[in-house]
Design a protein around this nucleic acid. Structure first.
Lengths: 194, 194
DNA sequence: ACCTGAACACCGTTCAAGT
DNA sequence: ACCTGAACACCGTTCAAGT
């Protein structure tokens, strides 16, 4: 019987891995479980990933791209230009709370960043998306500062929200808090820029 | 030979655990390694902790208290009342970057929050410290909102700073960013409160 | 009460072997 | 190239036994 994955095993493993972390959390994620889920032997993954860390890095990079895409989509679907930055904050929170395992993996995965430049690239791409959005609201010299402040703030709301392990009911509350963060930071930046 | 720990084994295990996560990171932390470090057999810890998760919860709670204490100390040592909130932000960043493993453990440890109310208590105590600080700068009805915004923002800067795995040189930069976050949020809150 | 050693079912990783 | 089974040194947890 031809059980070979003919080169798409790598993709199949990533898919299986996302399924596993979604179901068992980041802690329950093991190479062997992923292989089991993909229907291959426990060391078939080594043909595509040098180590567990290598697979984790690939997952983190892919997750980060998914988060960026989700934010980008929300921005594009928002007709009012003035609302786009707030829409991006809402989408960021929404994605983080809906995919807590992926969010955790994206930012807390233990792997050597230098050995995986594609992760850093994905990170920069996300920052660029945000910078462009902010340039609309805050066309000043310190738009990089503004980007870092806004991203950090929205990110921190997501992190603390997840750290407290909130029930789903608090989702809207957190999304509103993220909007408030954007509004307050923009107001603060305007009042201090003179 | 009397190798008994006579009731202080619990404290000895916590100390050993902090040493282990500091040296090997959160990933390399295992019950057996902690026991080894404390000089006891690999299942002596079960006399004091029901499971690995239980020990992790105790460590996270203790870490959170240490972070709160570090911030409190920095605040008390700042003579100018107007500078205390900024000093707290700087201290928060400083502690996070100096103790990345503990910081990660404090906020990302996987354990049942409901089974460990002492963690939630420690969290609330930290929030209270911040609320009191903010009441000085921003004596308004929405001081709870202000607390959440400021904590989230400073926390997010620490998280993203660690996620990017910055070299030590960027420490000052991040502490300054945290101060900028506090200033900008306070300015924004003032301008929007009318 | 507090600690130990043996045992169980796992894990990541390596290696020799199969197509 | 791609996959497998056996083996190694680990891990968390349980259990019967020792003081």
């Amino acid at each position: 019987m031809d059980q070979y994955h003919h080169g798409n095993l790598r993709a199949a493993l990533l898919k299986a891995a996302f399924h596993v972390i979604g179901k068992m959390g980041v802690e329950g994620f093991t190479l062997r479980e992923v292989a089991r889920r993909a229907g291959v032997s426990h060391n078939a993954p080594y043909r595509h990933f040098q180590s567990r860390e290598d697979l984790v890095a690939a997952l983190a990079t892919e997750s980060l791209r998914q988060l960026t895409d989700a934010v980008r989509l929300a921005v594009e679907q928002e007709p009012k230009a003035a609302e786009r930055l707030r829409a991006s904050a809402r989408a960021y929170l929404h994605w983080a709370l809906k995919n807590p395992s992926r969010f955790q993996l994206t930012f807390h995965a233990a792997f050597d960043r230098q050995a995986h430049p594609e992760y850093v690239e994905a990170y920069m791409e996300s920052l660029t998306l945000l910078s462009n959005l902010i340039a609309i609201h805050h066309p000043a010299a310190d738009s990089e500062l503004a980007s870092e402040l806004i991203w950090s703030s929205v990110h921190g709301i997501a992190e603390l929200g997840l750290a407290r392990r909130l029930r789903d009911g608090a989702k809207d509350e957190l999304e509103q808090l993220a909007e408030a963060a954007v509004d307050t930071l923009l107001a603060g930046l305007r009042s201090r820029r003179r």
